[in-house]
Design a protein around this nucleic acid. Structure first.
Lengths: 314, 314
DNA sequence: GACAAGCGAGTACAACGTATCCGGGAGGAA
DNA sequence: TTCCTCCCGGATACGTTGTACTCGCTTGTC
């Protein structure tokens, strides 16, 4: 229709970028393929390809090998936006982690993940071997977010504490991790192995026998993961009952304990609850505090052990 | 056949009690119902009912409302009787636990349990609210098998160790327990509460602040349960791969670690493996040993804590 | 006899993980 | 330009899970 002096490929590129600008095509949508463009505009394939090249160089579209060309996201922070971004292993993992964080690990079904990716359930299997693989990869991805800015010269206790806290933090942010963890078979998760390695490095300086070094690193893991497992329980129970831990303790647990001779059957519980009842807010199970306490006890114990070993050794 | 002066109901009662005495009917068996008796002896329903009344008043049989009349236990210890026993909550739980022990918790499906009971799946729901209830009840039943012969006069450390070991033993025998455990919400499992109460009792003597007493009891639980969670992983992995933990470590893990620059990426792992390689049998993760080590560390720490508290307090 | 009540069984459904097959677009070869 | 070969994503389907509903059947009691 319009006759202009600009070359055909530029005209086509302009037309396509108009469609994008006017939102006929929005971020994530597939842009016509080379062949479609050629047919639609009645030009040669080479011309069509050149037009798409222009768009690509302008950053308006992104060509993903073997998958077609799609409209690029309008701005970097598209948020949960691009519902139709290309399916990649990373995206699958990210969506799965998002579901797990929000609704717990048992809400992570292949179908749910697929739905969040805007994709058929079976499409996931192109990027993930199966559910087990998915969960493992999720764990690895999450452990991979762990950042350790560690002063390698600091005393061992400080370094171990830092590593333990970092691990603890990851578990706090992803409560479902507690349910996944292995241990006896140190999962070949690269990210986790790396943290473990740093931990072993710090333990080297304690002055324990090699076997004890390894034992200690397992115990520290166990402490973290064991306590962190409560996060999941916690969340699960909150969403089940709609009560926070404290509310639950106050409203359900304490009355139940007070009722019908329970106190009589569990005298020491009763005694302690007597104490807590006298406190302003009762006892609230502060996992944070428990973690620090347990960590302190373990490290104290290790230090003493090393000390004893040294005394006997010399 | 026999003509006697005694009334029909007495004759019937005598015949039935003979059957019981001669073990044609033994404890727990169903005694003929009113209707069956009426048909068998050719008497009226009322007569049959009266005969059964006699047996009931003699304590030979027990009538359970809406469930039939059964022979009373000869003596208190009737023990786990026949495979075709009547469906009771206890039997359901026992079979479920048997499955879990043998094949892991994930093998415990309602259908599997029902099959083992020789019963339709839905029949279980008469005795169990649902799967969750089943699992909770299984845990409770298993914790209930825990025996504590505890010298209440022994020093606290000894008592705590004994309780911890008892709990550990239960988890060792029922590896699936590790996957169930709550904690923040102390499950209202009576059996578990009882153990917890004993533990708190022992902790009272340590000399800690009340809150610390409770914290300590949670930490001890966490240590036990956290480590014990590996039992399940262990079993699961063994049945998956057909390798024991040691074999797995030797055959899979170590070679994997040796391969392709892994050692370079995890230098401290590498270093330790160098040590273990030199040992006769390498490193084998002995959970038993880890448990004792961790328990010792925690108790040492608590003792020190109490000591410090006392020093500051006075 | 009639009665209500509880038990066990049967049927059915939704949701799950996943094996299998298929259409179609993209890129390379002819 | 025309095919050929990939491989992605989709559709369909199977077997298994937990469980809601709904039946008879049998019980002890009027």
């Amino acid at each position: 229709m319009s006759e202009s002096t600009e070359p055909p490929y530029a005209r086509i590129a302009a037309e396509l970028s108009r469609r994008i600008a006017e939102r006929e095509l929005t971020a994530g949508d597939k842009v016509p393929s080379t062949r479609q463009v050629a047919r639609e505009f009645g030009v040669a394939l080479a011309t069509a390809a050149k037009a798409l090249d222009v768009l690509r160089s302008e950053g308006l579209v992104i060509t993903r090998p073997r998958s077609g060309t799609v409209v690029a996201p309008r701005r970097p922070g598209g948020a949960a936006g691009g519902p139709a971004a290309e399916l990649t292993r990373e995206r699958v993992l990210a969506e799965a982690v998002a579901i797990a964080d929000a609704e717990g690990l048992e809400a992570v079904s292949m179908r749910a993940v697929a739905a969040r990716c805007g994709v058929a359930p079976m499409s996931l299997y192109r990027h993930v071997e199966g559910k087990d693989d998915l969960v493992m990869a999720m764990s690895d991805a999450v452990y991979g977010t762990l950042v350790l800015d560690l002063d390698e010269a600091a005393p061992w206790r400080e370094r171990i504490t830092a590593i333990a806290r970092a691990l603890w933090r990851v578990h706090r942010e992803h409560p479902w991790l507690g349910r996944v963890h292995p241990l006896t078979r140190p999962l070949p998760l690269p990210s986790l192995l790396e943290v473990g390695d740093r931990l072993l490095g710090a333990l080297e300086d304690v002055g324990l026998a090699p076997k004890l070094q390894f034992d200690a690193h397992v115990l520290l893991y166990s402490h973290i993961v064991g306590l962190a497992a409560n996060f999941e329980r916690e969340d699960e129970a909150i969403s089940d009952t709609g009560l926070s831990a404290e509310e639950w303790t106050d409203l359900q647990y304490v009355p139940a304990m007070n009722g019908s001779g329970v106190m009589a059957r569990y005298p020491h519980f009763a005694k302690l609850f007597g104490h807590f009842g006298a406190l302003p807010e009762g006892y609230d199970m502060d996992l944070e505090e428990l973690f620090e306490l347990g960590l302190g006890l373990l490290l104290d114990g290790l230090a003493a052990l090393a000390e004893r070993g040294r005394a006997r050794g010399c």
